[in-house]
Amino acid sequence: MNNAIPILAIRFLILFGVQIFIFNNVSILGYINPFVYILFILLFPLRTNQEQFLIISFLIGLVLDLFMDTGGIHATACVTVAFLRPTFLKIIFGVAYDYMSIKFDFTDFLRKMTYVFTLILIHNFVVIALERFSFSHFLLSLWFALLTSAVTFFISIILLILFKYKT
């Protein structure tokens, strides 16, 4: 864990730099704003204390909220993703992930993609649900969430392939 902290700090700075300086200014088709920073939570070390992990995720979301003027939307979304992460790890990678008998790096591509996509979808869904805060345009919101997730997923995959990550 100790030598993981500098790596995490660098990853945090890079992902947030990219998010704040580039992706917050990008809006594909006029309204799709990819949230690539979520990769930080997806790639967070598996063996961290879960309570610590929840609090860290909350703070990370709050930092982004500060830059986006969105109150606590991203904080809530990040906490939700962090809370659901173990469940999805279990479903997608099997029970074994708990004991670290599989290396996160070498599991097959398809499973990794499923993992990344599901959690991105959940994150975007929470963000958009909270941002709109009403059921009046439910289908439209759903469509928004789906499109944003697809774009975020696409960019995340490119980033993951470019920088081979370690957990």
């Binding site: 909350f58 109150g71 606590g72 939307i73 904080a75 906490v79």
Partner: peptide
């Protein structure tokens, strides 16, 4: 944490 987050949002 979620409640805090939503409270800030509202």
């Amino acid at each position: 944490l979620s409640i805090i987050g939503i409270a800030i949002t509202v």
